[in-house]
Structures are given as C-alpha cells and as structure tokens.
Design a protein around this nucleic acid. Structure first.
Lengths: 249, 249
DNA sequence: GACCATCTTATTGTCCGACAATCCGACAGG
DNA sequence: CCTGTCGGATTGTCGGACAATAAGATGGTC
C-alpha cells in the first residue's frame, strides 16, 4: 500500500522554539542587529526549560540567523553572510565528491553572466573596488596564498558590482573550492600570473566602459584559461575538491 | 590603529565537540548511514555533560550532517541533501532581499550551461527521467501548483542529467524561489503552458541527440520567455522573492 | 526457518537546580 | 576623554532526574 497517512507531526519543543524564532526573523519582525532576549527570558516566554531554548539557539546560530559580536556574550539577529553560505555549500559539495571539473564547469556557466551584470550596473565605487583588486593582483608581490586570495577578491568584487545577491552568494563557495587547486596552478605554471593579470585588465576595461558583451567574452576566455592551467599544471580534472577542514562554526 | 592582535581564540565546549564530529565526517572516517554513538556515550568519550553534547548535535543536525530515520530516535551520519542546501540558500536569498529579476538573471546565466552539460553527458536513465518530466507537464492536468511542480521537476531532471553535483545543488534554491511567481504566470498568462511545453520538447530533443549547442540555445530562449511571462503577467521584476516560511528544520 | 506479538531495556526529550567565568554597564578618578 | 574598579546579569557547563518511546531481545506460531 502506498503511503496513505502522513505521520502526525509531533515536533520536539526545541524545534518548535527554533521555528518560532526563525519565522519571526524571516518575517522581519525581528530585525538584523537587534539583540535577542536572554535565554532565561526566552525560556520564560516559551514556557520551556533553558536547556531546551539553548538547543534551539544552537540551530539558529549555525544557520547564520543568530550571531554574536566579536567576543560578545549576547546573541543578535543576523542574516547569513557570504561566508556562512559559502562554508555550508562548499562543505556539501565536498561531501558530494564534486570534482574540480565540476566546479570549473559551474564557474564557466556563471561568471560570464556575472561579468555582464557587473558591466551593466556597476557603480562608481564598485568599479573602484574592482580596479583595486586587479591592481593588488598585478603587484605580483607576496606568496602564492596571497595571489590566490587576490584572484578570489577580484571575482568577489565583480560579483558585488553586479548588485545581484544571488551572484554574490553563489560566487563564494565556488571560489573557495577552487582556491587550493588555483594555488597549485600559480605555483607550477610560470605564465599563469601574467595571463590572469591581462584578463583582469581587459575585464576591468570592459566593465568600466559598461560593455557587457565584451566583459562576458573576456570572462569566458579567462575561465577557459583556468582549464588550460589545470592541464599544464598536471592537475587531473577529476580531482575531488577537498574541504580544507577549516572551522565553519 | 589597525588590528594588531587577533583575539586569542577560546571555543566553548559545544563548539569543539561539534567540530570534532564534523571533521570526522568530512574526513570520511564516519560514513554516511552509520549510526552515531548515543548521547551518553559521546558525553563519556568527550568528557563533557550530555547537555553539551546535545547542543553540538543540534548544530550538526541543522547543517545536514546528521539526521534521523523517519520516526527514529537515533542519529545517523548524513550528507546534506538538495533540500537542506536549497532551504538554507533560499532562506538566505530571501533575507538579502533578492528580487525575482535577480533570480531570473542567475537562472539565465546557469541554465544554458546545465542544458549543455546534460546534452553532453546524459545517461539513458537520466534521459528517460527528463522525458517523463516533460510528459507530465505536457499532460496539462492538475492545478497550478502541480504544473509548477512539474516545471521544477523538469529543471531538476536536467540538472541531474548533467551529472554535476554543483549544478544539481545550485538548481534547487533558484527554482524554489521562482515557484511562487511562476505559479502566478501560469495562472495569468494563457499561452504560458503551451510555450513551456514546446520549449521543454525542444530541449529534450536536443539532449537526446546529445546536441549541447542547441540544448543551450533553447534553454536560453526558454528562460528569456520567463521574463516575458513576468511582464505579461504584470509581475514587477523588482518584486522580492518571499520565503514561504515553510519548515526547514 | 520465517514471521509475528510481547516484553525489557536503552535512549531521547525535557525538566530542575546549581555554580564559575566573564561580559556589561555604571561609576569614580586622573 | 581615557582608565580602573565593582556589582549584577548572562552564558557555559555541570549533575541528576523522569516520562515517553524506539530498539532490541524473547518466545510463540505457521
């Protein structure tokens, strides 16, 4: 027999509490930055034990809906940041055995669109950020790690310039996953830095001129270059992206 | 003054416990499907109180790294599902005030790539799934909600056919966010169903023929059609995608 | 042996009360 | 205005308790 009846949903108290808070945050009845009542107070209002409240809070905390100020004790209403999302998503992708070629393919699909959006809508400040990022990379100073960070910063700035939160949020996990292999490329492929630098320059010019088509084309070329980088560096495309096991909270 | 010193990091016990378990899951020392020791046992091993263990478990649970079987009591090691990720991401996008135009733009960027990947790599079963989804939509029966569900199922099947976990995971939240507005389109635009049906047919043909280029082109057209749908249906593109406030756990 | 009902035990969900560490805000002094 | 001090509030953690129920063992039936 097919499933005729759903199990009648009994939800444990800690879930109901976390749902209650979550829904008020989503409904914007609790605003970002606003401090949450103390645990004791919440326990009083929900008429449950403080331990139960704490379990609910831990859920919301790791969803990025609650957070605390640096070194602080109280919880504040927060919205999930790029980092929160990026951490969760890249963790999930690592577990699903995503390979560098998968991530690269996604990058190839997404980035030209992002570049186009950035060219169309970039503000003056966003453009400045983008130029700054490109220049920081072009300075060529610093370790491999720094260079990789600067590449990521360029993509981030571009995403930001597109003023599309979807792009901004999707960018982060992809870059995070590519970073390790990108570091290898920069190490092993002598001309990598120069090629990246020139691509960034072209993209900046196009974005500055609000030329979406050219921006997208250069970006497509740029991303294709990464793939050649993998080949030249001798990184098998089927390498699994490994989560770096860093703390995500 | 610039930040000269990092705060020396003290992590509360519940965080250290959850990190310890998380890292063993990511390292695949704990395998999917494997049952976790009981709370009491974990408390014994970590030498902390059971309440502390429980807080750690709640975190992992809402990260999708632990879950329980239907109606079950014990926790098992899990990998984050499409739904888990999709829930979190769409919630985040809703909070960041993503608008339908933002989501649409992302769809426009991603979907042609997905269609191309599907055409190149689709297995026989995946193709069958895709055809089934298209036929279910073409049947035209059922409510608006059912139709919307079938549209989403088509995109899902396509993502699956691409055999790229990145695409699979990115697809879900975008569709979830579009669903409500898509429902309005199907309601208000008489020719919507017919246009979707024909686009799906063309895409299926291209995927079947392993013709990546055509698949991508039709998909691009298909997505562009959605935008026209918004206009005809009188949905402002700047409408914020509203999270439906459904339980995500 | 395979299937089923029943019983026992183990485990989870929830509560209570307690206490040390420490963050917060106020307040006084240079 | 910055710095040092102080009391109170709040969090992190602990131990112990108990009801509800899922999981596993037991034994009977075909």
């Amino acid at each position: 027999m097919e499933t005729m009846f759903e199990p009648l949903g009994y939800a444990p108290a800690y879930l109901r509490v976390s749902e209650a808070i979550r829904s008020r945050i989503l409904r914007r009845e609790l605003l970002e930055g606003q401090p949450l009542p103390t645990e004791t107070e919440l326990a009083r209002q929900f008429e449950v034990n403080r331990s139960t409240v704490r379990e609910a809070l831990r859920k919301l905390e790791s969803n990025g809906l609650l957070g605390r100020r640096r070194g602080g004790k109280r919880l504040y209403v927060t919205h999930p940041t790029r980092e929160t999302i990026g951490g969760g998503l890249s963790q999930a992708l690592a577990l699903h055995r995503a390979r560098v070629v998968d991530v690269w393919e996604a990058l190839q699909a997404v980035q030209p669109g992002i570049a186009a959006a950035a060219a169309e809508r970039r503000s003056a400040e966003a453009l400045a950020q983008l130029e700054a990022a490109a220049q920081r990379f072009a300075a060529r100073k610093g370790t491999r790690e720094l260079a990789v960070g600067n590449v990521a910063a360029f993509f981030d700035a571009l995403g930001e310039a597109g003023a599309n939160p979807v792009f901004t949020l999707l960018n982060e996990p992809l870059l995070r996953l590519l970073k390790p292999s990108l570091a290898v490329i920069i190490d092993r492929v002598p001309q990598a830095r120069a090629r990246i630098e020139s691509a960034q320059k072209q993209i900046v010019v196009a974005v500055k001129a609000r030329d979406a088509k050219t921006a997208a084309e250069w970006m497509a070329r740029h991303v294709r270059d990464f793939r050649r980088g993998y080949e030249v560096a001798g990184i098998p495309l089927s390498t699994e992206v490994g989560e770096d096991l860093d703390v995500v909270s």
